[in-house]
Amino acid sequence: MSELKFHIYPLETGFHGATRPIPNPDLIAKYNYTSFTPFKNSKDNSDDYIAVAAKEIRRDIIRSLVEAKSGHSGGPLGIADVMATLYFGGVMNYDPKNPWMDGRDRFVLSAGHMAPVLYATLANAGFMEKKELLTLRKLNSRLQGHPGRDMGLPGIETSTGSLGQGMGIAAGMALADKYVSKNNHRVYCITGDGELQEGEIWESAMFAAHWKLDNFCVLVDRNHCQIDGRNPDVMEVDPVADKWKAFGFHTIHINGHSISEIRAAYEEARNTKEKPTCIVAETYMGHPITFMNDDYRWHGKPPNKEQAELALAELAE
């Protein structure tokens, strides 16, 4: 018996011409993107180090959004502490120099609209030059409005953007690892809480629990907000943690802005056998920007120039 070999990791086949957009040199200088060295991923990193990374990720979200003039601020800012912990707290195994290496853990952003936080995290981890963040949503950019695998950006494991789909794909990756390749790689997924209204989430949850995918960890960004309003005003999703428990997940309820709680939860997930884990992370949309915090109206808009300056001032060291 043999293996059918085929090319899996993405090539740049998508909607783009011969050249990618060139970021404005003045902005590169203004944001000091030329002198940047990537954050390191290690279990030994202190919570403070991760907090510094989270702050830089937040600044990059603001910078890329204000230059893009469209895109989502609220969700990405709110989930930055989780992303920083995943990528710099030694939770995920990856190598930016060898982004498609066989032994890597996978990350799937099921809530594809939160792309700015993924791009900012990848850039800070060294998957791309930071100046590329300034091409977000521009013609031919690898930083599509929602992640597009066809753009070949290292670290983008799958396209997402239709809510409810990414988690099923992530479960498929976990199934492949656990039962077909029989390795010990882990798959991490983040969903929104409004996204939980999509039926596929619960199908995939049933699937993951049925197949005892203990190498699979979903984190719900529990910010109580979605586009049209707060969750209960649009469609009640509570009791969130009880639902995941009932679906057969080991469920952990945490403060999604506490790096120590996020780390501990991911550690607990790793040590949980025979069950997938769901971490329900309580966050605030737009956190910690004062004029955005916990306000659903920041779901899908970018800051304007003045707002960006205010936000960056709040995020200064």
Binding site: I8, G168, I169, A170, M173, D177, S181, E203
Partner: peptide
């Protein structure tokens, strides 16, 4: 769950 089976298939394919 046809939708999820299709998504899981995608994850499998993206894993070789």
């Amino acid at each position: 769950m046809e939708a999820t089976a299709t998504l899981v298939a995608t994850g499998l394919a993206l894993s070789g």
